[in-house]
Design a protein around this nucleic acid. Structure first.
Length: 496
RNA sequence: GGGCCGUUAGCUCAGCUGGUAGAGCACUGCCCUUUUAAGGCAGGUGUCCCGAGUUCGAAUCUCGGACGGCUCACCA
């Protein structure tokens, strides 16, 4: 089996290996140390846009890039080279360069990285082209590039060999550039509002701050099990206790759950906390933050996601969860009994655990009957207290909390609340959560040190979390979270 | 983990109701001094994912397995 692979692989490589050997024999080292460019391809294209046909540029340009196409015509060669932004045609005439150089050029393969030098002209068809006087092969490519007609479509290869995906699919590079701009814009927005960016531990002794299964790891010297964090929340709140008033963290969370179009085991989360503020303040920040991204990164507040036009223009609607259920599902959760709600859920084949609470039922009804209908941006507020262990109870109704989630395209893209800061209440809620957690694969423990911190006293505060990957998905119209994570987790390659 | 679909040349794919394979791109050689999915002529691509079964005969049918995609569940 292994022998087979080696054999077939060497078949693929053969011609390129021979070309490499050809270069070595002529004393050409195809792994150069540097190449000084006069500019990027984009610069040169812009500079020569007005060039008249039949006229050569005054300046000699030096450009470098990957050879992405070659067209041999006997005594001339056409091709395109591409750098990080643009591609440009190159034109080599046998009369213009030494015979040996011409022979070497004919041995170049698609994928080689080359440097070219020459004047710029426009071809008969008006394409800006480099008339090559000199060239250097900067890096030899030994493996073939993805096929040029169909490009690289195989999703597995695209994710597994992202470098090929980036070479073959321009829009992929663009998506990741937008991702970076979004994160940069979030930072600059929050920094300008006086937030301090902090870093809290990724390795936790007690997993907390969210309801999810953690990854387990081990510290050898301390002979101690550690969990990769599922959320930074409890540490960021400790900072509020410590006296920071506006903090945020943008970093990875790790959750040992299933992988799907919306889930990657490690994902990037923004969490922010504002002292002396409640959930209403934070809700406004969430809206401002996202509208600001739309303005600064895309320049429009109307985005199209998977064929659906989404208008991010503020103000976003706000609906209490129970009101949304009434509006979209016609169910009055106040009036209906628990049994009636359970029957409705069972019709949708939702599993109901024994001893389920009314609050959990309301949350399930919302998820099953309402969520997918929330296409345009909307804040769902007032979540049941049973599903919101870290949120303060509502001033109006103690069965609900001062909590909100912004929904877009049927997906929750964030989560925020008036942070619970009563240590006794918090400890009680933690214990109730542990009781409700019937699956219990990971031993749930109350984070006593966090309770101690609350006992020292945390100012009233509002907090917000936003899943960055999912947010980016909207802005780059990505159907899968894997399209916005450069190297998504995949199973190791099988022995095919 | 459940369900659905897929796996044929390096790549993208075709191969009807079973008679052991085909196209384009890529690759090799030759021709071609403004082409751009360049073109023309010639060349060979291959344990048809693996294993077992049915059959005179399996890429094709049956069963089992591997790998992958989508989807549902857990979750954000």
């Amino acid at each position: 089996m292994e022998e087979m692979n080696e054999k077939s692989e060497s078949e693929i490589l053969k011609s390129r290996e021979e070309n490499l050997e050809f270069l070595f024999q002529r004393g050409v080292l195809p792994y150069k140390y540097e190449f000084l460019r006069t500019g990027t391809i984009k610069d040169v294209l812009e500079k020569n846009r007005e060039l008249k046909e039949g006229v050569e540029s005054e300046n000699t340009e030096r450009l470098a890039g990957r050879l992405i196409s070659i067209r041999l015509h006997g005594k001339t060669i056409f091709g395109h080279i591409k750098d990080s932004e643009k591609k440009i045609q190159i034109y080599v005439r046998k009369d213009d360069i030494k015979e040996e150089q011409f022979e070497i050029f004919k041995k170049l393969d698609i994928g080689d990285i080359v440097g070219v030098e020459g004047k710029i002209f426009k071809t008969r068809t008006g394409e800006i082209t480099v008339k090559v006087d000199k060239f250097e092969i900067l890096t030899k490519s030994l493996l073939p590039l993805p096929e040029k007609w169909h490009g690289l479509k195989d999703k597995e290869i695209r994710y597994r060999k992202r470098y090929l995906d980036l070479i073959a699919n321009d829009d992929v590079k663009k998506s990741f550039e937008i991702r970076t701009k979004i994160i940069r814009e979030i930072r600059s927005f929050l920094d300008s509002k006086g937030f301090l960016e902090v870093e809290t531990p990724m390795m936790h002794v007690i997993p907390g701050g969210a309801k999810a299964k953690p990854f387990l790891t081990h510290h050898n010297a301390l002979d101690m099990d550690l969990y990769l964090r599922i959320a930074p929340e409890l540490y960021l709140k400790r900072l509020l206790v410590g006296g920071f008033e506006k903090v945020y963290e943008i970093n990875r969370n790790f959750r040992n759950e299933g992988i799907s179009i919306k889930h990657n085991p490690e994902f990037t989360m923004l969490e922010l906390y504002v002292a002396y503020a409640d959930y209403k303040v934070v809700m406004q920040i969430a809206e401002d933050l996202i509208v600001n991204i739309a303005d600064k990164v895309l320049g429009t507040r109307v985005i199209e996601y998977q064929g659906e036009k989404i208008d991010l223009s503020p103000p976003w609607k706000k609906k209490k969860m129970t009101d949304a259920i009434k509006e979209y599902a016609g169910i009055d959760t106040e009036k209906e009994s628990e049994k009636e709600l359970i029957d409705r859920l069972k019709q949708k084949e939702v599993e109901i655990r024994d001893g389920i609470t009314k609050g959990e039922l309301i949350a399930l009804i919302f998820e099953e009957f309402v969520e997918e209908k929330l296409i345009q941006p909307v804040f769902i507020t007032d979540f049941p207290v049973e599903v919101s262990p870290l949120a303060k109870k509502s001033r109006e109704n103690s069965k609900f909390t001062e909590r909100f989630e912004p929904y877009i395209f049927g997906r929750e893209i964030g989560n925020g609340f008036s942070e619970l800061n009563d240590p006794k209440e918090q400890e009680k809620r933690f214990r109730e959560q542990i009781e409700m957690d019937t699956e219990g694969e990971v031993a749930r423990v109350v984070d006593k040190d966090f309770i101690d911190a609350l006992k020292v006293g945390m100012p009233p505060a509002g907090g917000l979390g936003i899943g960055i990957d999912r947010l980016v998905m909207f802005f780059v119209n990505a159907p899968s979270i894997r399209d916005v994570i450069l190297f998504p987790l995949l199973k190791p390659e099988g022995d095919k």
